[in-house]
Design a protein around this nucleic acid. Structure first.
Lengths: 211, 211
DNA sequence: GTCTATAGACTGATAGAC
DNA sequence: GTCTATCAGTCTATAGAC
């Protein structure tokens, strides 16, 4: 046991935990190594630099997230059930990751050239989230500012992650987040029950149904 | 010119900017000093430790915020207009601070004994926000989980701050945030217009009307 | 792949002249 | 209150034995 790929994964999980608690800059490679049970220089058998640990974690979060939003954008039918199903699946998927994404989005670290690819992925993710909302506004289903709602979704998702990390039990937050956003943006609030029912049928297409 | 109190304030603003960009641990006292235009040891004429700079910034954010939520809790009348007016005033007040609060809430730093007082203030603020929502649920005005809505408000507020820092122009986000939350929690969505009108009369009691 | 040893830069904070 | 000089500790990353 303790194969190389195993150690690599344990480094990633330990690094994410420490980044979440103290930030990227506040985490020493010695701290990560200690949590894994190896010496600090041994990390460099798996990652050439500390920044590449962060890049691997960002990709593990961003690549599946981009796939989910692309699938939601590609679905047919009205926007409201697609937004609801996507939010539900997206938040549950992020909360079910084996590591904590909270410390990954360090704006200064993402601004460095080494992480340009990850920064571009993140910008693409935000742009597509905004488009999902804007489509619904254009169709008359939503009454909202897409830019603001995009930021609101980001804030709600990050806070759900923060809640899991700092609080006790990790609850199924996907459904509450989806309900909260849809209630806030639906032009016809009375249609929420129908939207939820339609979203339940779409969700299996967007990812595992966790809650 | 350049009196002592002046330099102290400029240290606080510079420190907040750097904490927002690189986090508390990622910011060197030399970086703060350079932004102020003094040498690194000169900082210690104004603050005994780096942590006390963070404590002063946290207090400048938390003490007025506690005052605002206490005034909202003390008001008479239904909960919905009070929640709307408080959210509007609170977000606008935070966005109009002369410094960036985004980097202040480092969980690991707040957990140290030196910042216990600030951590307690923050917990009190969260508890009172939750109570403002719970009162409305008990009165039948809201249909929501107060714990979840409390976290949602935190996430929306932090994202509004992040948006100001990373994006370009700082828009008046207090009203959109208040509308977003009220639409999401009101048991009777049709009452939003009346709630907004009543909130507009309360808002002058909670702080400056920025937008 | 992991180890010990260490390089070289940077960290927060102090001492003492002005 | 600001400065120069500096200390002791920590940081990421490398070299080379096993």
């Amino acid at each position: 046991m303790a194969r190389a790929a195993d150690t690599r994964d344990r480094i990633l999980v330990a690094a994410a935990d420490q980044f979440a608690a103290r930030g990227f800059h506040g985490t020493a490679t010695r701290d990560i190594a200690r949590a894994v049970g190896i010496r600090q220089p041994s990390l460099y058998s798996h990652f050439a630099t500390k920044q590449l640990i962060l890049a691997a974690l960002l990709d593990a979060d961003l690549v599946p997230a981009l796939d989910r939003v692309d699938r939601a954008l590609a679905l047919d039918g009205p926007c409201a059930p697609r937004l609801h199903a996507w939010l539900h699946a997206d938040v549950d998927a992020i909360l079910s990751l084996p590591f904590d994404v909270r410390g990954l989005y360090d704006d200064a670290a993402l601004a460095t050239p080494e992480l340009a690819e990850q920064a571009a992925r993140r910008a693409r993710l935000h742009e597509r989230t905004r488009r999902l909302v804007a489509d619904g506004v254009a169709a008359g289903e939503f009454d909202a500012d897409p830019g603001f709602v995009g930021h609101a979704i980001t804030g709600l998702t990050l806070e759900a992650v923060r809640e899991r990390s700092t609080g006790g039990a990790p609850p199924g937050r996907g459904l509450p987040v989806a309900d909260f956003v849809l209630r806030a943006v639906l032009a016809d609030p009375a249609s929420l029950a129908a939207v939820r029912a339609a979203a339940a049928r779409l969700r299996p297409l967007l990812g595992p149904a966790v809650s």
